[in-house]
């Protein structure tokens, strides 16, 4: 028996690369199997972004008197230049702006929500401790769960984009859609990193429901779902801009709508996104490991 393996509590288990991939696949498949039992939940999370985008559009029309006036006021207040001189085009861009903001928000929110709830559910059902005793590294289990959250979020994103395009009569393919999707994909590793931070937080403080609900709205604020973060006071603006989902949201919007990014030219945005994709997951996983060790030492992961 390898001493190293024994000391890690793996007994005779020696997970090789094939075994590790098997862990990722098993976790992924299990989560997918569970969610397919609740088809309505999947449908609902595709409708929610459309409702979220509809709220400011309706509110804006009522406040400004018409949708075109709402778009004009919005672009003027936020310091964003509408790329078209036609008011009707600006109104369409305004609708697309809200739709893409809501869709991106849904991706970020779902990824955090699903990881948080996964940790909490495992704690409550008493299976989190069992996972720690299994001959599988936590990284692979987390990779399985995050892959599942990614698939579910992207599915919601695509469905919401199609639905929203029909409801709001906008064409997301009219802009640089491929580049926007590339930014979305590039933003995913950073979201993984943040979800590790979030998972650690839930493991530590346990009250997942209230924390998730609160953080959702903090997220909506920080990401600039309904308006760019440039309207915030300086300190708050810089804090929000340092938040990777804000960068992702801005990159997708500016690429798709042809408006100027709040971060600068496209290569600055790309550079920042690459940096976030590299550093945030590493920091997130380190943080998760640190909190996990502390929880295990203090009270054990099974307590909830």
């Amino acid at each position: 028996m390898a001493a190293e393996t024994v000391s890690k509590g793996f007994g005779l288990g020696r997970p090789g690369s094939r075994g590790s991939l098997g862990v990722i696949w098993s976790v992924f498949r299990a989560r997918i199997k569970i969610i397919t039992r609740y088809k309505g939940a999947v449908l609902l999370e595709s409708i929610i972004p459309v409702v979220f985008a509809g709220l400011p559009i309706l509110l804006g029309s009522a406040v400004a008197g018409s949708e075109q006036a709402a778009a004009a006021n919005f672009f003027s207040y936020t310091g964003t230049t509408c790329p078209s001189a036609l008011p009707s085009d600006c109104a369409t861009l305004f609708r697309l702006y809200m739709l893409m903001g809501s869709n991106t928000f849904m991706i970020v929110s779902l990824m955090l929500w699903l990881i948080g709830y996964w940790v909490r559910r495992e704690q409550e059902t008493g299976t989190l401790e069992a996972l720690y005793l299994a001959p599988a590294k936590r990284l692979y289990i987390l990779a399985g769960v995050t892959s599942y959250t990614l698939v579910r979020s992207l599915l919601a994103f695509v469905t919401a984009t199609v639905l929203g395009s029909i409801v709001f009569q906008v064409n997301p393919l009219s802009g640089l859609f491929g580049a926007a999707i590339a930014y979305l994909v590039l933003g995913i590793p950073a979201l993984w990193g943040i979800s590790f931070f979030f998972g650690a937080l839930v493991m530590r403080i346990k009250e997942a429901n209230s924390v998730i609900q609160l953080l959702q709205w903090v997220l909506a604020f920080a990401m600039g779902v309904y308006f760019p973060v440039t309207v915030f006071p300086l300190l708050l603006r810089w804090t929000a801009m340092a938040f990777p989902p804000t960068l992702m949201n801005d990159a997708i919007r500016s690429t798709l709508l042809g408006i100027t990014s709040i971060y600068g030219p496209w290569y600055v945005v790309l550079g920042l996104m690459l940096m976030a994709a590299w550093t945030v997951p590493l920091l997130g996983y380190q943080f998760f490991g640190l909190v996990e060790r502390r929880v295990r030492r203090d009270q054990g992961v099974g307590q909830f």
Binding site: A70, Y77, Q213, L214, F221
Partner: peptide, 21 residues
């Protein structure tokens, strides 16, 4: 968290209203 959430939601929509007004 509940209090902060209520405050944030109202503030978010108030700021959105400001942007349109």
């Amino acid at each position: 968290a509940l209090f902060a959430q209520i405050f944030l939601i109202i503030l978010l929509f108030v700021l959105t209203t400001v942007a349109f007004a």
